[in-house]
Design a protein around this nucleic acid. Sequence first.
DNA 1: TTAGTTGCAAATGTTTTGCAACATA
DNA 2: TATGTTGCAAAACATTTGCAACTAA
Lengths: 142, 142
Amino acid sequence: MKAPQDVFAEYLTNENLKMTPQRRLILDTLLKHDNHLSSEELYAKVKKRDNSVGQATVYRTLKLLSDSGLVEPLDFADGVTRYEASYGKDHHDHLICEKCGKNIEILDNVIEQRQEQLAKKHGFTLLRHKMYLYGLCSDCKK
Amino acid sequence: MKAPQDVFAEYLTNENLKMTPQRRLILDTLLKHDNHLSSEELYAKVKKRDNSVGQATVYRTLKLLSDSGLVEPLDFADGVTRYEASYGKDHHDHLICEKCGKNIEILDNVIEQRQEQLAKKHGFTLLRHKMYLYGLCSDCKK
DNA sequence: TTAGTTGCAAATGTTTTGCAACATA
DNA sequence: TATGTTGCAAAACATTTGCAACTAA
């Protein structure tokens, strides 16, 4: 399997876009920290490595990474979009504890299939979906 | 079953808040138009009935209505929060056309059950969930 | 050399908030 | 009458964009 860096490089070439040190750095930083970072949080981490990078570049690069399929925007409905490195990883949804914020990645093939069927039944081609389950984890129930 | 207006009144009393003509009007307007209005859109409709109502009051009232469980905030990932009168209605999810915005309400018991099972498997008590399916409708595929 | 990229600051668009006047319980 | 509420405008917030200087290919 190709390295994400290479996938990104190919994507850029394909789209007549250019690889830059900033883009490399941003992808690299995201891969290192992977977990559900907001643009703001990623920006902070990137800035530690190269203080000259601008906030807008992070936003712009995250859009490119999303378009290239390397990264997935997550929407936990708290007003901030978060991003997750999705390349090479299985698709999954999220089970979130409303009390402590614990976040478990879940996958259920039955659900995935039914989603497809449901969409088809209504004449839709399913492009993507979001499923978030909210509840109380075993610790917080006590 | 209680009328939504009464539920709202009781909620306000419980919380030591007050019923006002504006709140009555906003709830009433939302109930009349029910379907997936944004705060902005609701504000426009409210304003037609009473031009003196302010935008902020609509936002504030929508928050109260959400907290009281009468209304559910929807997130179609277009940057605007929409609201749906949920009181007394069956739960359902949404199938959304990414191109034209068409919005179909869906319900699948198999999925609902699996969600419960999945949560339980991880020790969670499921409180609620959000599921949005995004795709292209038959018209927009052409 | 040329087309794409950057950082900056300003603009955008939605939602929130401070405040003084006002209305409900 | 005391406390909550309103409308307004300003603020806050995340995100996008215009632009002149820059840089990868």
